[in-house]
Amino acid sequence: MLSTKFTPATKLSKAEIDRKWWEIGDFFRRNSLWLLMYCTGCCAIELPPAMTSAYDMERLGMGPMATPRQADILLVSGYLSLKTLRRLIYTYEQMSEPRYVVALGSCPINGGIYHDSHAVINQLDQYIPVDVYVAGCMPNTEAVMNGFVDLMDQIKHKTANGWKKYHANFEWYKENQRNSLGEVDVHDEFHE
């Protein structure tokens, strides 16, 4: 008599096995997110309370990371000047996949109070894909934490696909970057 303890394994296709592994990976990934804080603007002031004992993002399993290569989230906090955007694109392309982008404040959404500035871009998702926007000028720390929980939800439901969009629409993103920046490569006396 066959034991019921060891049921024979059903044959799974390669795609199904991959999907299962991704689900396992996503479970662990969304509970251990490491942030690369690119503190471009004033919304960075919301991060100290979010990190420390007031809201304590470590209870969500999140922590700061020093280098882009080991970070999961690129956190853009505030307005982006053209000069910063060049470095941000460098940083984004250095990150390992899967990578997510969280943008704080109204400036990356539609320019905010800098909508008519010659130096500040108006819409971040034209240049790199953004998974979560946290609106507000500046957003509450509660809103920032809610944005992180939203991102975890998105990873759970497999809708945090920004990095896949970047691959699929790479030419479109590059063209937008070139139209606004002229050239994405940095040419200054410190890089030569």
Partner: peptide
């Protein structure tokens, strides 16, 4: 070049420079 990179217009702090027109021309609006 020091602060602005790849600048392609008249110097931006001159009074006859229109930053809004420049922004409308260069950066996509939502």
């Amino acid at each position: 070049q020091l602060i602005l990179e790849e600048w392609d217009d008249i110097p931006p702090l001159r009074k006859d420079f229109d930053p809004e027109a420049y922004s409308d021309r260069k950066f996509p609006k939502r």
